[in-house]
Design a protein around this nucleic acid. Structure first.
Lengths: 225, 225
DNA sequence: ACCTGAACACCGTTCAAGT
DNA sequence: ACCTGAACACCGTTCAAGT
């Protein structure tokens, strides 16, 4: 949660309307702007405008736009449901954990796209990675492979969330892909034609299936069954 | 480098030096610029400059920058080694195929990053998808899951190629990640500390292992083994 | 038809000057 | 210390005018 500098209760009178700037205030407002305008409509100047100031003001608190996006991502990841205890078996906990991670990225337009171009190193990201390593170890994933496995799971969930939220956000993109598959020669690409509907289907089931695939694959340690 | 106004040696006769523009010429030159300047240094104006013209000229042949990037990606994918025949077993062919796909994206700085933000619908992309569906069918992957599986494989290979080529291209990024892991509290994140070296290791072995994991997982149809 | 100079509407970032 | 107007050095894209 982190509480920044405690509310300084400057209170009414003077002009309390203009909230004092701080990293936390900027990050929170930036996430609002991202949610409202989407990834393609997001930029520093709009964040500044939403804060009723000029873009130059933000550089007192931020190194650059990259740092802001990293802070936004970590802040958004606070919403991920962490595995609570030992109630469930490790496998169910792992899946629920990752699906929550998927949902957080998928449901907020733009956050998934930021995640794709930002390697997260904030406290919430570290907590997620640590818990993931623990669950894999509990599941008996070979020690040396647990690190690669955790990375594989996060990378894939991030990528599919970005792809699918992008399709939802930009219906034009989806229509173009669909049209390209429709127009593909059915003689030259018979399998694409046969799998047409499945290829462009998406949503929750697909992410769920993919997680099963990766988890099962890891349990065999990357060797042939 | 940039050489200001080019020495105007208009040379022999008319001025045949200035190669006639075309989509192919633009795409080829754009890939050169991408290779030379990297993804972050790539833009339309530099492509135009490399073609010795102004940016407006390109709009005779291109809808916009997105279309150029889609064409660049498909052009780069021509270098992927397609599975030749029935010499090898399907599994070896599948892995060699995907590793070639990985290498093409990984070895060209920037191409992998373009691939992440561009859904490929060009002829080379379609050919790759078609062949992939065929190999999975040959391997006995359940019909309805082959489409999702092909997409899963391509998505993951693309994502890991983009991540790793980005680390190589921007050592600063890598150093920052390494520093973040180093500085993480060893009491709060003991597993991250224990897996430190493996987490930041990369390269070929990692992609190879990940492919084994996904292929093995798919053979179980996403059900518990 | 193709090409292009010039302009438009933006960006992120810096800097000098204010408080 | 914080804030800000103004400017800088870019972008992608459009448009009118040329050939």
């Amino acid at each position: 949660m982190k509480e920044g500098t405690p509310r300084t209760i400057v209170s009414r009178r003077n002009r309390p309307a203009k909230a004092a700037l701080s990293r936390d205030v900027i990050v929170a407002k930036a996430l609002e702007v991202l949610e409202r305008d989407g990834f393609s409509g997001f930029n520093l100047r709009r964040v500044a405008a939403a804060l009723d100031t000029g873009p130059a003001s933000l550089y007192v608190y931020l190194e650059n736009l990259d740092e802001l996006q990293a802070l936004m991502l970590d802040s958004a990841l606070a919403a991920v449901n962490l595995p609570k205890g030992q109630d469930l078996e490790w496998r169910s906990e792992l899946k629920a954990f990752l699906l929550s991670y998927f949902r957080v990225l998928y449901e907020r337009p733009g956050v998934a796209q930021i995640a794709l171009s930002t390697i997260p190193t904030g406290p919430n990201s570290l907590r997620i990675l640590e818990l993931l390593l623990g669950l894999l170890a509990e599941g008996g994933v070979e020690n040396a492979k647990a690190a690669w496995g955790a990375d594989l799971l996060l990378l894939y969930v991030t990528a599919i969330a970005a792809e699918q939220s992008n399709w939802r956000a930009q219906k034009m993109v989806f229509e173009r892909v669909k049209a390209a598959l429709d127009n593909a020669s059915k003689e030259e690409f018979p399998l694409i034609a046969a799998h047409h509907d499945t290829l462009i289907s998406g949503g929750h089931d697909r992410a769920d299936w993919a997680l099963e695939v990766i988890i099962n694959g890891m349990l065999f340690g990357g060797k042939q069954p």
